Amino acid sequence: PMINYLLIGLFLNIAFPAVPAWAFVLASIALVTVLNVVGINSVAKTSNLIVGAQIVFIGVFVALSWQTLGNGQPMDLLAPLRGDGSAPGFGPLMAGAAVLCLSFLGFDAVSTLAEESRDARRDVPRAIILTTLFAGLLFTVLAYASQLVLPGSTFANADAAANEVMLKAGGQFLANFFTAAYVAGSLGSALASQAAVSRILYTMGRDRVLPQRTFGHLSPRLGTPVFAILLVSAFSLLALVIDLSTLASLISFGALVAFSAVNLAVVKTHLMDDRAQRNLKGLLCYGAVPLVGLSLTLWLWTSLSALTMVIGLCWFALGLAYLAVLTAGFRRQMCVVDFSEAG
């Protein structure tokens, strides 16, 4: 959630420069914390309203962009695919992809709410796939339209470059609409991500990976993991002191760790543990495809900054040391969660 709070402070400070960014950050943390403590129903209802507002904004942006592009000047539809020549080569593209892979996070958070869905076995996998496909298509269309409206890679404020795109596409009206929709979207993302992270911490507490008395406790009245929610909010206060590029890179580091682990887990589960899958189809689906995914993920990793790698690897080392303590120096297994219907 931290990056959402940072972005809320950044964009609202641009709209209301008299109010410091930290005030908006604190207010948004307080609002999201209260909604998460109250319960998942409040999170779901608020998120639905926010998504509806964003869909309206997307429609207005596309319409005004089309109007701006159709003002009689020649338009090169392939320009967004070629770039403006200011950053040649494949390296800058990979560097951008390594940072912006965080934009695709969220589809995996659906799985953390399995215990609070009506039919988890049917709904959760379907929601993950649909979210990934829809978000990928939406990001591509909006990025393509933005590059057509304002070609180039140099902006007055790189952290708020989208504001310049909106001014070019629809003037001050669209810029104000964008700020409102973006802040609403960041609040929605913070709501969902804080709900997901707190429930991961609760599950780890319930399974005794983290101290059970604190992390594995649900509020008897509200039915929410209040301690985990408050802990996430406390960590989110780092948004007051960290810069956007470093935070985005750190989140991407964590995402790339997870993506790498998922690809390796597919190979382990379907080929190493299940001998029946060791046929041509299995080798292609459960061997070649995840290994290609792992290779691309490792390639993206090389594009992260040195500072990100140092901080990320130190955090990874701390986790490994904690795992060593829990397993008595890797001599005993961790507890295994039973995901069966009867478990």
Rank of each mutant, 00 (worst) to 15 (best):
V51E: 01
V60W: 06
L174N: 09
L77N: 03
F57W: 10
A169G: 08
A120V: 11
A181C: 14
L148V: 04
A175M: 07
M75N: 11
A127E: 06
A161P: 03
A79V: 13
A135Y: 04
F104H: 06
A135K: 13
A184W: 05
D159I: 09
V165G: 14
I58F: 03
S111Y: 03
A109V: 06
G91E: 05
S153E: 06
A53Y: 05
D159G: 04
L113S: 09
T154V: 14
G72N: 05
P74M: 05
A98R: 11
V51K: 09
S65T: 10
A98N: 03
A190L: 00
F57N: 06
L174M: 01
F90I: 15
A145R: 08
L78G: 08
E116T: 12
C101M: 05
A135E: 08
F90C: 03
I128A: 13
N163H: 13
G136R: 02
G85K: 02
V183S: 10
M166I: 11
L130C: 02
A95R: 15
A53S: 12
N71H: 12
L49C: 15
R122F: 07
R122C: 02
V110T: 04
T179N: 01
N157C: 14
E115N: 09
T131R: 01
A162C: 05
S111V: 12
G85Q: 01
R121W: 07
I50F: 05
Q54T: 02
S146N: 07
G59V: 08
L167W: 01
K45W: 13
D119S: 02
Q73P: 09
I50L: 12
A127N: 03
M94P: 01
A162Y: 11
P125V: 10
T131K: 04
P125L: 15
T46M: 15
D84Q: 07
G171H: 02
A120I: 15
C101K: 06
G70W: 05
N48L: 11
N176Q: 10
A135L: 09
L137A: 15
G72E: 00
A127Q: 05
L102Q: 08
S117E: 00
G89F: 09
R126K: 13
F134M: 10
R121H: 01
L105T: 11
A175R: 14
V165Q: 07
L174P: 06
M166E: 08
K168V: 07
F173M: 10
L78Q: 10
S189E: 08
A95H: 11
L78K: 07
G152N: 08
I58Y: 07
I129M: 11
F57T: 09
I128G: 13
A175F: 02
Q67W: 09
L191P: 04
L187Q: 01
S153L: 12
I55C: 04
A114I: 12
V56C: 06
L81G: 00
D76Q: 03
L133A: 09
